[in-house]
Computed example of a mutant assay.
Amino acid sequence: MSIHSTAIVHPKAELDKDVTIGPYCMVGEHVKIGRGTELMSHVCIEGWTEIGHRCKFFPFVSIGTPPQHLQYHDEPTKVVIGDENILREYVTVNRGTAFGGGVTTLGKHNFLMAYVHIAHDCHVGDSVVMANAATLAGHIHIGSYAVIGGLVGVHQYVRIGDYAMIGGCSAVARDVPPYMRAAGNRSKLYGLNAIGLRRGGFSAARIRVLKQAYQVLFRKGQRLAEATKLARHQFQDSQDVLMMLTFLEASTRGVCRPARKGQDDQEEF
């Protein structure tokens, strides 16, 4: 374990072996940090925060600070961060609210670029990339392997599915289904995130079925509820499509609508 002489670490904080605390960092009383994690410099970790193994926090990261919500009254809510995450400069992660579940979570193998903000009661999956200054309001769910472009703002209570991609400078006010690309203010769907799926190991056959399902769901002129029932019958053997349909059926904010026909394969993010 290495703690710089200028760092302030509360004696009750729990630090595993091989933790590195750099210059001018602050670690609070209720913080737990897993083995091999590094706080480079000027990092502030406070509140009831649990951090996993081999994470790396760049300068001026702030974790576990109180939620930016007027109904928060110093309840002992939490932030839980998994293993092997990289948080670049000035990333902020607020802890949860008592009325919102009490915890903000970040999975494993995520890469949060500079100035990313994750607000109270958000839940981010695994292997997510959030580019510079991407911002999540409260109560947002981000699926695993999603990519959130730079300067994106996501409205509270929105869900973004697994392997989805959000283009830069977008404002996302409705749910984005798994495997899809979305962009714009307010965001619209631009077809399948085929490049991301290929990089994620999806076969050509799986991608082809998802493209067919997208056409049924969003390009046949039917109401989404009717299209969902049709797709569930037509693609009952595809676990990928069934997962997407379950996501759609659980939406409470509504789903981003598709862009004009002919733009699905033309929009470049």
Results as ranks from 00 to 15, higher is better:
residue 2 S to E: 07
residue 6 T to K: 11
residue 7 A to N: 08
residue 8 I to P: 03
residue 9 V to E: 05
residue 10 H to Y: 05
residue 14 E to Q: 11
residue 14 E to T: 12
residue 16 D to K: 13
residue 17 K to G: 14
residue 18 D to A: 09
residue 21 I to C: 02
residue 21 I to M: 01
residue 22 G to A: 04
residue 25 C to N: 09
residue 27 V to P: 09
residue 30 H to L: 02
residue 31 V to H: 03
residue 33 I to D: 06
residue 34 G to M: 03
residue 35 R to H: 12
residue 35 R to S: 13
residue 36 G to S: 06
residue 36 G to Y: 06
residue 37 T to N: 04
residue 41 S to I: 01
residue 42 H to I: 00
residue 43 V to T: 01
residue 45 I to Q: 01
residue 47 G to T: 11
residue 48 W to P: 00
residue 53 H to Q: 12
residue 53 H to W: 06
residue 56 K to A: 05
residue 58 F to V: 02
residue 61 V to M: 06
residue 67 P to R: 08
residue 71 Q to K: 15
residue 72 Y to V: 06
residue 76 P to Y: 08
residue 77 T to M: 08
residue 78 K to Y: 04
residue 78 K to W: 08
residue 79 V to M: 02
residue 79 V to C: 07
residue 83 D to Y: 03
residue 85 N to H: 10
residue 86 I to P: 02
residue 86 I to L: 12
residue 87 L to D: 02
residue 88 R to C: 04
residue 90 Y to T: 12
residue 97 T to K: 05
residue 101 G to V: 06
residue 103 V to F: 00
residue 104 T to H: 00
residue 106 L to Q: 00
residue 108 K to Q: 00
residue 108 K to E: 13
residue 109 H to P: 04
residue 109 H to L: 03
residue 111 F to T: 05
residue 115 Y to H: 07
residue 115 Y to G: 04
residue 116 V to L: 02
residue 120 H to K: 04
residue 122 C to T: 07
residue 125 G to T: 14
residue 130 M to S: 02
residue 133 A to N: 14
residue 133 A to F: 09
residue 135 T to F: 11
residue 139 H to S: 07
residue 142 I to G: 03
residue 146 A to I: 10
residue 150 G to N: 09
residue 151 L to S: 14
residue 151 L to V: 11
residue 154 V to K: 08
residue 157 Y to W: 15
residue 160 I to M: 14
residue 163 Y to D: 11
residue 163 Y to K: 12
residue 163 Y to L: 13
residue 164 A to P: 12
residue 167 G to S: 10
residue 167 G to Q: 12
residue 168 G to N: 15
residue 171 A to T: 14
residue 175 D to T: 08
residue 179 Y to A: 00
residue 179 Y to H: 15
residue 180 M to P: 00
residue 180 M to K: 05
residue 181 R to T: 04
residue 181 R to H: 03
residue 183 A to P: 06
residue 184 G to T: 11
residue 186 R to P: 13
residue 187 S to R: 00
residue 190 Y to T: 01
residue 190 Y to I: 02
residue 194 A to I: 14
residue 199 R to F: 10
residue 201 G to P: 04
residue 201 G to F: 01
residue 201 G to D: 05
residue 204 A to D: 15
residue 206 R to I: 10
residue 209 V to T: 14
residue 218 F to I: 13
residue 221 G to P: 06
residue 224 L to I: 13
residue 226 E to Q: 15
residue 228 T to N: 10
residue 229 K to A: 15
residue 230 L to T: 14
residue 231 A to C: 11
residue 231 A to N: 15
residue 237 D to S: 15
residue 238 S to D: 10
residue 240 D to I: 11
residue 241 V to G: 08
residue 243 M to H: 12
residue 243 M to D: 13
residue 244 M to F: 05
residue 244 M to H: 00
residue 245 L to A: 09
residue 246 T to S: 15
residue 252 T to A: 13
residue 252 T to H: 14
residue 253 R to D: 07
residue 256 C to L: 08
residue 258 P to G: 06
residue 259 A to V: 11
residue 259 A to L: 06
residue 261 K to P: 09
residue 262 G to Y: 12
residue 263 Q to M: 07
residue 266 Q to A: 13
residue 269 F to A: 03
